[in-house]
Write a protein that binds this DNA or RNA. Structure first.
Lengths: 230, 230
DNA sequence: ATTCGTCAACTAACATGTCAGTTGAGGGGT
DNA sequence: ACCCCTCAACTGACATGTTAGTTGACGAAT
């Protein structure tokens, strides 16, 4: 088996940065499984680089919590813990609710227009059963709201603090009626924005985000191998 | 001038970790000034270690935004930007308001007791004009609320996403009446918790946190040398 | 006097040699 | 048969040599 890893040359910037980005991507899309052991020497010959940039990349991944470095011993892709996922969901909800409150207070016509367009697209994609495309549009919807706060880094920070959540989402099996529900929830959010109704915008966003954690909770018994026992 | 830097030996753990912690502390308490250039070779002989652990430490500080590494050229302590400070304040408010809402919903007797004790301490310290001690108690008050959510990492994440804010706070000149006001605001928060009044707990926390940004805004013209021009 | 090209000195980035701590298998003692 | 001790092999942590890119000063041409 060729064990095809990502090639580094498709990116730019310093070598350590490229290794970091490549490994981060592989961890987040579950190509590298939780619990898997990462050997520095193996990574060296797979990627064709020396140990320095790999050490730097692993260090940064470790500070983000995506890998666990056991001193003088081993490095492995970090496993899930349900407590951690619940915590990340709390933080994500805190930020997204604050963002929607800020946006709903005084939305511009352009913002409403862009959200409406995105929502129409979501409906079409669900009708066509293009769930991959819907997933993308869903992410865009939330990212747009975060960027409408006028704070450029908010969406980056919001992602960084819910990395495990994003990774766990990959494990959720598609449920038949869910996309249609999600579109309805998005419509409720948009309606509240149009009405400049801050309170109902907040609660609509809360309700929407709590759907995710309900579907994540059963994961611990479906995939116990990805969760740490402690 | 002896140029006394922190000694590394007072900490434990891997060398890179110690260097990271030491420099992080110095940056956060403004011992290392924004804009100051950090020379790796100079740090090597000051700390008595080689370049590897220093490179690791600087890499982690860079990913936290505390230093700017200009590729192949220089590394400097990052400067402030008012937009960034406003953004961090927004994020901090989002998390702390969500936390207070969760805590106020169903506080335990023990939680109320500990907050009350802390608040009494704050009053005493203000009466004695021990503002240094009050500053500590203030931080404890907020940290306690964050930890009462039951999520262990929330207070760490909340700090990590408002590092510049914490650093900028050091520049604020003490204002005569402010500590007394702060205690009153804390009391309003505690009262809302006792009443299990989620809505007023939220607004009391919001009002309290927005005091800080008002006192930070004039900083840009008082200390233009610490802000980046862009 | 001013502008532009050149070059030397400095920097971070990378490669690699070396050290120390951990782990797990095997052998000796009980 | 079981437990503990020892030791070899592997790992990450650190030191240091090497490379390549940036910068700023100096000097030549205008």
């Amino acid at each position: 088996m060729p064990e095809q890893t990502i090639d580094i040359n498709s990116l730019d910037g310093p070598l350590g940065q490229r290794v970091y980005a490549a490994m981060r991507g592989q961890i987040l899309d579950m190509t590298l499984e939780p619990g898997q052991i990462l050997r520095k020497s193996a990574l060296c010959e797979q990627l064709g680089v020396s140990r320095s940039p790999i050490a730097e990349a692993l260090g940064r991944l470790s500070s983000e919590g995506l890998v666990n470095i056991i001193p003088q011993s081993a490095t492995r892709v970090s496993q899930f813990s349900m407590a951690e996922l619940l915590e990340e969901n709390f933080l994500r909800e805190a930020v997204e609710v604050a963002a929607i409150a800020r946006v709903a207070k005084d939305p511009t016509h352009d913002q409403i227009l862009r959200l409406s367009r995105n929502l129409k697209l979501q409906s079409l994609l669900v009708e066509d059963h293009d769930f991959e495309g819907f997933f993308e549009a869903d992410l865009d919807f939330h990212e747009m709201i975060l960027s409408f706060t006028g704070f450029p880094k908010v969406n980056v920070v919001a992602e960084d603090m819910s990395l495990q959540l994003r990774r766990a989402r990959k494990l959720i099996l598609p449920e038949p009626g869910r996309p249609t529900e999600a579109v309805a929830e998005h419509e409720a959010i948009l309606q509240a924005i149009k009405d400049k109704d801050v309170a109902s915008a907040r609660s609509a966003m809360s309700r929407h985000l709590r759907q995710l954690i309900q579907r994540i909770e059963p994961l611990e018994r479906e995939h116990p191998e990805y969760f740490r026992s402690t």
